[in-house]
Structures are given as C-alpha cells and as structure tokens.
Design a protein around this nucleic acid. Structure first.
Lengths: 218, 218
DNA sequence: ACAAATGTTGACCAAATGAATAGTGTTCTT
DNA sequence: AAGAACACTATTCATTTGGTCAACATTTGT
C-alpha cells in the first residue's frame, strides 16, 4: 500500500490548492531573498520531489490560473504579471537630519527607505529625491502633520514651493516666497514667524509628495 | 587599419563609462519590460557584439563597480542590490467610486495603481488594501485634502478610525465613532453634519495611510 | 614611451535548465 | 460509478546559458 500521498485538495480563496499556494509562496520568497526566480530543479530540491516534472506541472497549473507568466524556453523566466504592469519603482532614502551640504547624499545618515513607483509621485524618473520625517506643527495649515514623511526633490525652488531649508544648522520645512526679487521663508502656522534670511539661503529640496502612515496620529 | 573602435572613455557621475551606462540601461529596460534579466547572448545580440565575451566583460565591470550583483553559474542571475534590500512591494488598486458591495475587488473599475513597500505603510503583508481619491473638504480638519489618495484596509473599524463608508450609494470618508454601543460617522469639518446611520452602516475600509502628490494643490 | 584599464573578436566546453513521455495513486465533483 | 483535476515518480533529450582561452585595438595616466 502506498502511504506517501495524504493530500487533501483544498481550494483557497484565490482558486489555488494548498500545494500550489505553497509553491507560489516559495517563488515569492525565493525571488525576494535571492533576487532571481528558482529553476525547476531548485523547486524540486526545496520540496524534496524526486523529479522536476512535479515542479513543472505545478508551474503549469499556476500559469493556467493566471498567477504567473512564463517565457517558454528561457531560464528562470517566471514572472508575476503585476510586476510587468508596475511602473518603475524608486528607492527614496529617509534622512533624520540633513545638516551637511547635501551635495552628495550620504548613505550613513539614512534612517530607512521608501520604495514607491514614480507615477504615484508624479516625478521624472531621473529626479534626485530624498525624504524627511516631519517634526513639529509649523506647516500644519498646509496640512502637513508631525510624523508625516515628506518627499523632496533636489532642485531650484519656484515661488510658493514648500521647501526644506537649512536654518541654524537644522533642516526645517517652510514655504518659499519670492517677493520682489527677495526670497523669504513662511511657516504655515500663525504661531510661527516668517524667516527673512540674514545671509545665504540654503535650500535642500522642494516638496513633491507626502506620505502619512497609519500608525501616525491624526 | 581598424576603424571599428571609436570609443571615448568618458566617465559618468556614477563612475561608469558611456558604454557601461548603455549596458546598464539595457539591463534595466529589459528587466522592466520582459520581467527577466537578459542572458549574455541576448545582451550580445542587442548590442551587435560578435561574442558573449564583450557582454561578459561588461557585466564583470558593472559587478566590480558594485552596480549589479551576480550569482555565479546561475542563468540570468543579475541583481540590482537596491532591490534585494527593498521591502516587499504591493500594488494597491485605486478606485474612483466603490458603489457595489466590495466583497470582490472589481478590476474593471480600477483607475490606477499605487506600488509601495509594505513597511512604509506599516501594514501586514497579507492585508487587503485599496485606495481612494479624496474629493471635497469634509476631512480637512484631519488634514486630508481634496486630491489626496487615501490607502484603506478592508477590515472591521475600531473606535475613532477614519473609514470609507457607503452613504446614499456614494463612498465618503468619515471618522467612525462608537458612542455607547451606537456607531455614527463624523466629518472632520465643522461645516459638515454628523451622520447617524438610518439603517445599516456599510464600512468599506479603514484608513491606514495617505499619499499626497506634488501636483496636487495645497 | 610604457603600463594599465577598457573594449573587442572568435571559437569552444561544461553545466544549468526547460521540456517531453509514460505511468501510479488520490481526491473531488457529478 | 465515472471522469476530471490533482500530486507525484522515473527517465531521457535538446537547448540555453555561463564561463573560459588566446588574441588584438584604443584610450588614459604616469
């Protein structure tokens, strides 16, 4: 009597069986950890199959159900359809402070990263961007809250742009106003005064987007 | 006299030569369009090289400069290091309206997609999420503006959560308040009245994040 | 002028990899 | 009870693919 098979074919919400779900998870895990899709023999080894055909037929099943796409004949050519439709994703470094000149983005001070597609932010693909965590309420009337993450582009500010500026060795978010050729910085909160730059005005970036986290207070 | 070679070795900002830059662009384009990395022979064919060795040496150069990582012996195993560090990216469909029951997310009504890493939103990897474009000023006191994109999770609301609710066949954003066992909906704008549900209260999702675009007005 | 780095050519090998065929047992639906 | 979908074993073949060797040309810095 053959007691190897004890399979209970249960269908999941997405129309996959338990085993197919396991295979899909392995594909995703492998792709995320190693950066490449596993070959049929790597799938075989991971599940302890005695032949590649088992892996092959599972891949065929996933393809038939539209979960994956494969390029026939090509090696490791398993694709998740959603990744093909996806816009280009960029990685935006988050800095706590940017005290220095910002000429070269210093990886050491990076606190984390936001990965987001460029279309959602509406920025050009070659834009140099970075992000800052907002502390304080100085821009609350522009509906920028403490805890928000603002996305900034490294470029020249235009009138009324919201900018990150270096003031007294600290980076703060302010609205950039050009008044008769003279620039000054305006807080979007009546409790904060306008700032007329004494000497040089150092603009670190122009706000192009904002990200608010569910765990933030609002 | 051999007049094939007209190479001017110019170094780019990232330390790559012109040719290496072209190769990198082909890798990125190919990866984004086809979903897989090109093989050395596909690189060869694209650039019209007479042998794989040209492609190989370019790949080696890119690897030496840290632009790519390769897994020796494995097929199409070229990896961009930033993608390895990247958190898992999910694709959140954007709906204009969600009039229907929302039991099954209907792809037909999809207006677009936001691709973002799960860590930036702070949501579990298996969360069922969708996004809505905000119209109107009813949540302005919660600093949610017209034009913002709110990210919502399909789950039961807790007290004081901001939710998308179905009211008169339209989806609107409101704060969910549970008062002595009776739920009602509160607009975060003094000009808008509270809403006490006449019959059934249909909650479509709970706000877990917000995305504001640079092109939005503020 | 010389060395080092870069870009190229052509031919070849061995390993990695996808794919096919034939057959067994299990579970689910009708 | 029958058919379909599912989960696998065992073996074999053909192609894809990475990797190497031996040269040679051009540019760049010392």
């Amino acid at each position: 009597m053959n007691s190897v098979l004890r399979t209970t074919v249960q269908f999941m919400a997405n129309g996959l069986t338990k085993r197919q779900e396991e295979l899909l998870n392995f594909l995703k895990l492998s792709h995320h950890q190693n950066g490449v899709m596993p070959s049929t023999r790597e799938i075989q080894a991971h599940f302890g199959f005695a032949s590649q055909t088992a892996a092959m037929s599972h891949l065929r099943a996933l393809e038939r159900k539209g979960i994956i796409v494969r390029l026939p004949g090509k090696a490791r050519a398993v694709i998740f359809p959603e990744e093909l439709e996806r816009e280009e994703v960029i990685d935006i470094p988050i800095y706590g402070n940017i005290a220095a000149g910002m000429a070269e983005a210093v990886a050491e001070e990076k606190e984390g990263c936001v990965s987001i597609d460029i279309a959602s932010l509406g920025i050009p693909r070659n834009a140099r961007t970075f992000a800052l965590r907002v502390r304080g309420e100085s821009m609350i009337d522009a509906h920028i809250c403490s805890g928000d993450t603002v996305i900034l582009e490294f470029r020249e500010p235009r009138n009324k742009d919201i900018v990150a500026a270096l003031i007294d060795g600290e980076t703060t978010l302010k609205r950039f106003i050009m008044d008769k050729g003279k620039p000054y910085l305006k807080a979007e909160n009546v409790d904060f005064p306008d700032l007329i730059p004494a000497s040089e005005l150092v603009i670190q970036g122009v706000m192009v987007g904002l990200l608010r986290n569910g765990t933030s207070r609002w």
